[in-house]
Design a binder for these strands. Sequence first.
RNA 1: GGAGAGGUGCCGGAGUGGUUGAUCGGGGCGGUCUCGAAAACCGUUGUAGCUUUCGGGCUACCGUGGGUUCGAAUCCCACCUUCUCCGCCA
Length: 409
Amino acid sequence: MLDINLIRENQEFVIKALQDRQMDPAPVTRMVELDQLRRTTLAEVEKLKAERNTASKEIGRTKDAAERTAKIEAMRVVGDQITALDQQVKEVETELNSLALNVPNIPDGRVPYGTGEDENVVIRHEGVVAEPKFDTIPHWDLGTALGIIDFERGAKLTGSRFYVLNDGAARLQRALISFMLDTHIRNGYHERYTPYMVKSDALYGAGQLPKFRDNLYRDAEEDLWFIPTAEVPLTGLYMNEIIEEEELPLRLTSYTACFRREKMSAGRDVRGIKRGHQFDKVELYCCLPEKSDEEHQRIMHSAEEVCRKLELPYRIIQQCTGDLGFSAQLCYDIEVWAPGCKEWLEVSSISNDGDFQARRGAIRYREKESGKPRFLHTLNGSGLGLPRTLIAVMKLTNNRTGRSSFRKR
RNA sequence: GGAGAGGUGCCGGAGUGGUUGAUCGGGGCGGUCUCGAAAACCGUUGUAGCUUUCGGGCUACCGUGGGUUCGAAUCCCACCUUCUCCGCCA
């Protein structure tokens, strides 16, 4: 959520930001109109309320019955006006709010302009992508051949894009989760185990709703939604709270399953375990008062450390304006090389959201000096996504030993 | 799932229709006293919005959302949530 004052005072700037993101800026103009209407109507109705409050107190003191009745009659008219104006304010606010919830964060000045994913910028390479000494096999073939990934039974149980990990693959994933969490904990992050289902509030706060509704699974009868990422419960953790400045920064890490409904056509991009509807992820999260650049790097380091220790060659991508995530103002992706399917796989996306989520979820801290509550900055990044790490590690293991270390069954 | 009782400010806890944004106690902060501290005493202590001649002024908020009323923390309805007992269960 953007500050309405920012939109009012820097309308052109906000419009430019939306255009850079390849989005329609029309709602911004409408928001400015509504904001103006809201304030004039509010001034009007509040004046009437002040009048009524004074009169009501007088009525309380009035002993004379006739006089009392006269005053009540007079106030009844004012009461009706208030009801009508309150209704108007509410309608305006409802429209304003629904527009505001769909306006993305403003890209940081350093985000390169680009119309979409293809214009993201590779800013750094780490590790060497070795030429394979023999033909490589994509993980869906390797996993099936080794008997450690069972796509057929996954589909039988749940449907397409669900799978079962057997023996070594299941065990390897579990070990990777522990390894990732332990790495982050050593780097100062505190582990949290959260619910995998949340109320819609948490999804609005994190910026998943209302825009990405179609990508979410939910309980049909209750207001309960499966999390698409641990970022959602971690952001929700401190919603509607005021944190003391001494307690910041809050550095959190969490392992969760993630559920994404996203309908994609079957084909190469969804082949294997790369893009399942359910996947595991270890998440990194931080909230702190402003000055979030340094913290962004800190999250990067912890995520990169996992790649380095696993000896996975990787590269850092900077998202351009056209690809930048909805809530993010600055975002880097980490992609590891998967020799099996010969492609770079995004295993992490590390965003600085500024105060965007904090405004949506009313996450604040009390500034020590002034004693005033302020919005804080939130950052999040994967550290890392499990299935894709598994893909890269599986191949690596096979490469190094020349044979599988997994027992076929 | 059934039965019952609650949700009030940083905390505890009053308050069942009219100067109650909220008695009181504790805590915090400022001060007096003191060599210093404790004690005692005095003062102060929420969030948000609108507006301002920047001194302020006004409005809203007592779990959330509706309703009744000239007027609601107080009455009515729905929901969320906590606790106790019973049932069920890893």
